[in-house]
Design a protein around this nucleic acid. Structure first.
Lengths: 351, 351
DNA sequence: CTGAAAGCGCTTACAG
DNA sequence: CTGAAAGCGCTTACAG
């Protein structure tokens, strides 16, 4: 009943412990006959390999840490799935933690993973992460790691993410093209680089056409439907709805659509709404939601590739992989036009 | 640059390795002064505790394995988040794997986790899991584990899940009450216990009111929006839409809503649609979706509790925690009535 | 192709 | 309160 070890297997099959270890690794230094015999003994005894011991000895762990803020967000769920898939293919198992966007929690998870001597870490940084909090990862006893989706100012590390300024600009141009005059940018964590960059791209294109987003029309929130509802209500409380509500993410947009429905504002007619990420749910909305695709599978893929590369060559130069976004136009903006909207106003709808 | 170990710390602080170990555990057998000195040395040297070595020695791991099929499904995402939270609070770290509903993959993950000597495993079994595939978990060198969401026929283990028959019955009664005559049950993995049970409860209530679900109106699919679209198209190809489409899950229902919209069938007027799980998205649909809540947070909570109990007492009797479901009625069924629907048919809408 | 010995980095009695 | 010794279960040169 006590755990069976290589020693037990060695004794029962009449070979040395080293020989058993070689069988475990399917070494060609052991005859086929011996291998078979030893394996039979293992099966009979119910031997189970102990990777912890093996890893301690070989100084590898074949474990990678994955820290994300939250997986209720389908975008992060997709990212997580892809990364697990790629690292699994490379023979790694994942140690998982959710930071809930809390710096303390993230710090604890990083410490734990370091103490387990993971071979590498994939980190989607909590919103307020400082370079100081990650400094330990780059020190002499650091851990190979890659940041995803959010960069951390002042922290030099491999990074995979989407071109957020470009993403904002794509939507900005589209807004100009449909002839909108008034625009709001809603949702997303206020300080975050991703939000800042999307807004910057958006404003750049709008301004080149003489449009702008009044400061009170840029409203942050958590990147969730609930956040979208809250931000949208704040926006509508300020005055008449703008021509376009650009949402930080599809998740936010879902909440916005909900709120607008409750107010009997017809999306795609009375006003236009768009999101970012292009989740599956976006095209299943009513009306289907215009969204800027940010390709979590590709980002996950690049992140896994970067990490494997760095584990292999810890001292190589730092790389960034920036995935280009794509605008997918759907009914939620396509249906809107300045005329249609103005007619509505005349009929008194829209307020 | 070579890794700093307890020996290095001991040498640098002039105490024995045992003493350093005791400091690490904050033992009262070491004086405060010594502790402070040793800790200072650790900080100066950049010492990082090696949990693998410690765990090897103490024969614990403080790691729990979590295997779920997929986390794109928001229901599973919520379950995962809750379990991580509870186990984290209890001091455990999670080893994660996605089975993608594949038996082979699941088998591999279970083997890996066993080899890492996890203290326990939380398993959301792949759809086709057999008792034989899990037999190893119950053997003499087994691992404490708990099954969630899906039972496995013939495998005796702790289990946390929702009362699926009851859930089906709740929806069945509601369907009878709104006066529907024709019903379909759409989506969900065909062989699975969850689907079978939800359908059984549904049929029981319908039959007690003289209604039934024709065999060709029970159509399986993956539990995703895409699965819902596929199953719904199959259903509509067979003839006129039924009064009610009961969907295996909200995920399936989202696909069904999408398909019905494309066919210009008005949900909540021409016909009724309902789902299971009551995800946040359900109440943000247009119209808001009637759904039977299945409380993933509560199931995750119970699962964590069961696992911790079993890790503590490996030989205790097997427990099941069955969470009662709740029906949340919304516009997608509430708006429908036999009359409204009949008027539609006369106008030629609905085909 | 095989065996005896050392060691990965920790903890735990045990004796002082 | 501290130290010397053994050991967790594996692998890796090294010598045969």
């Amino acid at each position: 009943m006590g755990k069976i070890t290589v020693s037990d297997v060695a004794a029962a099959s009449g070979v040395s412990r080293a020989a058993v270890s070689l069988v475990l690794q399917d070494s060609h230094r052991v005859s086929a006959a011996t291998k078979e015999r030893v394996r039979q003994v293992m099966a009979d005894l119910g031997y189970v390999y102990d990777r912890r011991a093996a890893n301690l000895r070989t100084r590898k762990s074949m474990i990678v840490g994955l820290i994300v803020t939250n997986v209720r967000n389908p975008y992060f769920a997709e990212l997580t799935m892809t990364i697990e898939q790629r690292l699994h293919e490379a023979g790694y198992t994942l140690l998982l933690g959710y930071s809930h966007d809390e710096d303390d929690r993230q710090r604890g998870l990083l410490a734990t993973m370091t103490e387990y001597r993971v071979d590498g870490i994939v980190l989607l940084p909590a919103a307020e992460t400082t370079a100081a909090a990650l400094a330990g990862l780059n020190g002499k006893s650091g851990t190979p790691h890659v940041l995803i989706a959010r960069k951390v100012r002042g922290h030099d590390a491999d990074y995979a993410g989407v071109a957020n300024i470009k993403a904002g600009a794509l939507l900005g141009r589209h807004i100009v093209e449909i002839g909108a005059r008034t625009v709001a940018f809603i949702g997303g964590p206020c300080g975050s680089i991703a939000r800042t960059e999307r807004e910057r791209g958006l404003r750049r294109e709008l301004e080149s056409a003489g449009l702008s987003i009044p400061i009170e029309n840029s409203i942050g929130s958590p990147s969730t439907p609930a956040g979208g509802i809250e931000a949208c209500e704040k926006l509508l409380a300020q005055g008449p709805a703008p021509d376009v509500i650009a949402c930080y993410s599809d998740a936010v947009a879902f909440g916005v659509l909900h709120t607008l429905r409750e107010r009997d504002l017809r999306v795609g007619t009375d006003l236009a709404v768009a999101g970012f990420d292009d989740t599956t749910e976006a095209r299943h909305q009513n009306p289907p939601l215009t969204s800027v695709a940010t390709f979590p599978e590709r980002i996950g893929d690049e992140a896994a590739r970067l990490l494997l590369g760095r584990i292999d060559q810890p001292d190589r130069e730092v790389h960034s992989r920036i995935v280009p976004p794509r605008l997918n136009v759907r009914q939620s903006t396509e249906g809107w036009s300045p005329t249609a909207s103005r007619e509505q106003s005349k009929k008194g709808v829209g307020r």
